[in-house]
Simulated scan of single mutants.
Amino acid sequence: MTAPRRLALAALLLLSTGAAARADDMPVIKVEMRDGVILPATIEVPANTRFKLEISNTGQSPVEFESLELKREKALAAGSTSAIVFRTLDAGSYDIFDDFHPEAKAKLVAK
């Protein structure tokens, strides 16, 4: 392998390692959705900070995590887990609901 290629490979490895470290440093907030229930009912997240919302569907039917204010939605099959990464959120309260179970509502509160 030529010297420039070794240098390029080393730089690429360094960059990918740095990105993985930053992803591991972000707060992870867990949310459970289960057949018409969102837990917790008040989801507290850090304001002005990048974070990951990990959503688990522990129920027997599909769910859809949705917020019109945040312009985010994520459908999950029964028994599955997925995540949404938020770059930052302004401090405030945002309505969350399950589009497949209209009675399921929660608040996402950024402080």
Results as ranks from 00 to 15, higher is better:
72 R>E: 08
74 K>P: 04
39 L>I: 06
53 L>R: 00
102 P>F: 04
36 G>Q: 07
62 P>V: 11
86 F>A: 06
59 G>T: 05
80 S>W: 08
49 T>G: 01
58 T>P: 08
54 E>Q: 14
38 I>P: 03
31 V>R: 00
34 R>N: 15
71 K>F: 10
68 L>K: 14
43 I>M: 02
91 A>R: 12
41 A>N: 08
54 E>N: 11
38 I>N: 03
40 P>G: 02
89 L>T: 04
44 E>R: 14
88 T>A: 11
72 R>M: 10
74 K>Y: 08
89 L>S: 02
38 I>G: 02
35 D>L: 04
88 T>I: 05
36 G>L: 06
33 M>N: 05
31 V>W: 00
41 A>W: 03
54 E>I: 10
40 P>V: 03
71 K>N: 15
74 K>Q: 15
48 N>S: 10
92 G>H: 12
36 G>C: 09
51 F>V: 09
103 E>T: 15
98 D>R: 02
85 V>Q: 05
28 V>R: 13
70 L>I: 09
58 T>Y: 06
103 E>M: 08
56 S>I: 05
58 T>E: 09
69 E>L: 13
38 I>W: 02
42 T>V: 14
83 A>V: 11
34 R>T: 13
75 A>I: 12
32 E>C: 07
47 A>K: 06
68 L>Q: 14
51 F>H: 13
67 S>K: 01
91 A>H: 08
41 A>E: 13
58 T>M: 03
62 P>E: 12
100 F>E: 10
68 L>W: 08
72 R>W: 00
78 A>V: 09
100 F>Q: 12
48 N>G: 07
44 E>A: 09
92 G>Y: 10
86 F>R: 08
64 E>V: 15
84 I>R: 07
94 Y>V: 05
36 G>N: 08
82 S>N: 15
34 R>F: 01
94 Y>I: 02
29 I>P: 00
56 S>V: 08
63 V>N: 02
50 R>A: 13
60 Q>T: 15
51 F>I: 09
91 A>T: 13
45 V>M: 00
79 G>C: 13
32 E>S: 12
85 V>E: 11
98 D>E: 03
35 D>M: 05
79 G>H: 11
101 H>K: 04
92 G>A: 09
64 E>W: 08
42 T>H: 07
73 E>M: 15
94 Y>E: 01
62 P>C: 10
61 S>R: 12
37 V>K: 10
94 Y>R: 04
45 V>D: 00
65 F>P: 08
98 D>Q: 02
57 N>C: 03
99 D>A: 14
92 G>Q: 10
37 V>C: 01
51 F>G: 06
74 K>S: 13
85 V>D: 06
101 H>I: 07
37 V>D: 03
100 F>C: 01
32 E>R: 10
100 F>Y: 12
59 G>V: 04
41 A>P: 06
34 R>V: 11
90 D>V: 05
33 M>E: 03
81 T>Y: 06
46 P>C: 06
55 I>H: 05
79 G>L: 09
72 R>T: 14
60 Q>F: 09
28 V>S: 11
44 E>G: 03
79 G>W: 07
82 S>G: 15
78 A>W: 05
30 K>W: 04
95 D>C: 04
